[in-house]
């Protein structure tokens, strides 16, 4: 049978480096992934091949988590001149804690490099110097959170410089809530009516 392209939908949110180029035989068996550049896969009915097929071990969970954080840190080194050392150290520490193998559950994806880039670009662009706390969405997107007094702001960084945000702000006895999605370059303008500086700038 002819090899058919593997549906890459499941890999859509993985970093580019982790996104493999595959072909997979339609043999009615579980898909086994091989890097196309290194190996040839032939069905049992095809002509004998001189190429040697060597199974490639799937990376362990620990390797996947290490690779994801390493990619983020390596990319950070390219923009390090824009980040103060304290901020960089804070993000690196949080990345490590978010990817603690002992605390990892299920099939969640490690940090998406595109999401991480959006976070760092936002921090640099707006000179954010107070946190934020980070959590990891199951998709691998980073969720940055600020809480000042009784006010909360959470921003999910979506690859390609997009962001989903939600906030709640206490105004006397009334709690104001708002949410939206925008380009990261518009974040401060969108949040301006809700006292953006109150979250973004250290006090």
């Amino acid at each position: 049978m002819q090899p058919v392209p593997l549906d890459l939908t499941l890999f859509g949110s993985l970093p580019d480096r982790a996104r493999p180029a595959f072909t997979v035989p339609t043999l009615g068996e579980s898909a086994i992934a091989f890097p196309q550049a290194d190996f040839t896969i032939r069905s049992e009915t095809s002509q004998p091949s001189r190429s040697v097929t060597v199974p490639v071990a799937e990376p362990t969970l620990g390797e996947q988590l290490f690779d994801a954080t390493a990619q983020a840190k390596i990319w950070t080194s390219k923009v390090a001149m824009h980040l103060d050392p304290t901020t960089r150290k804070r993000f690196f520490s949080q990345l490590d804690r978010l990817h603690d193998e002992d605390e990892w559950v299920g099939a969640d994806l490690p940090v998406n490099l595109g999401s991480y880039k959006g976070l760092i670009r936002t921090v640099v662009k707006f000179g954010i110097d107070n946190g934020p706390s980070l959590a990891l969405m199951p998709s691998g997107n980073l969720l940055a959170m600020w809480e000042v007094d009784s006010n909360r702001l959470s921003i999910e960084f979506i690859p390609n410089d997009r962001a989903r945000w939600v906030l709640s702000r206490k105004l006397g006895e009334y709690i104001e809530r708002a949410a939206g999605e925008t380009a990261i370059e518009r974040l401060k303008a969108v949040l301006e009516p809700y006292d953006a500086d109150g979250w973004f700038v250290g006090r």
């Binding site: 949080q94 804690r97 605390e103 946190g131 934020p132 706390s133």
Partner: peptide
């Protein structure tokens, strides 16, 4: 709720 889906202090954890 695993640790990476909690809100934790960015410095002290």
């Amino acid at each position: 709720v695993p640790k990476n889906k909690q809100r934790r202090h960015p410095d002290t954890d």
